[in-house]
Every structure is written in structure tokens, then in C-alpha cells.
Amino acid sequence: MAALSFPSNFLTTTIDKAARWARTQSMWPATFGLACCAIEMMATGAAHNDLARFGMEVFRASPRQADLMIVAGRVSQKMAPVLRQVYDQMPDPKWVISMGACASSGGMFNNYALVQGVDEVVPVDVYVPGCPPGPQSLMHGILTLQRMIVEGKVAS
């Protein structure tokens, strides 16, 4: 009988790992382009970089169908409540990528009109530096997030 003894929670942890892997393979992004970063986000979805390789080609207009919010661009004080509402409407599990200097920290717009970093409004999992980050930079951020989810380093 000793040969048949599994470590405790063998089944549930294995399912959890499989579920985490499966979640990374089709993270549908919510469309949240706010500025020039959105152009690069669109380029990431286009043929030359093809976000469909990661199962992410469907940018959902409805937050109810999205798993990942890519905040692409500067968030003004007036946009902040909208952003939070979109985030709240997304079903769990959900993740946030803060794309570019403005979304991550305010960037060069250090003034009263802009939120100095979108993490003041929503919890951010991965920050992508760049102004704007190119498609490959964004994909690096996405891959970083995927790896963190698989390793269980972020809540999912």
C-alpha cells in the first residue's frame, strides 16, 4: 500500500496547475486603449506580431468577456472611475497589465490632470516600460504575466 500513497492534496493541486496553465492560453484582453500605446497594442494583434499565437487575438469590447486589462495610455483623473468600473465588471480571474510610461507612473506628464500610475486605481500585475512599448515589449510583458500565473505567483 505504501507504493500507492500520494502526497496530500495530489488531485487538487494537479488540477490547479492544469487550470492555471489553461488560463494562460486564452487570456482575452479588454480593449482599454487610451492613447498612443493603443496603436502599438493594435499592432501587436496584427499579422506581423500576431497575438493569436497566445490565444489573445480577441480584444473584447465588453469587460464581461475579458480576463486581462491592458491599460494602454495615460489615465486622466476623469477616466480613473471609468477604468475602475470596467475592472470591476470583469469576471474573476482577472489581471492587469500597465502598458507604457504614462499608465505605469504618469510618465512625462507629472501634473494634476493625470493619475500618476494606474496602480492607484486598480491592482497591476505587470508593468511594461517604454514610450510607447513596441509590440515585442508588450508581448514580453504578456509572457512575463503568463509565466507568473503558471508558477502561481499572482492570484488567479
Binding site: D119, V126, Y127, P129, P133, S137, G141
Partner: peptide
């Protein structure tokens, strides 16, 4: 080099 994504500020 452009791959600099981080998980905290």
C-alpha cells in the same frame, strides 16, 4: 534591449 517588464514599481 527593450525587455524590461517588471512586476513592481
Amino acid at each position: 534591449l527593450f525587455e524590461m517588464s517588471v512586476t513592481s514599481r
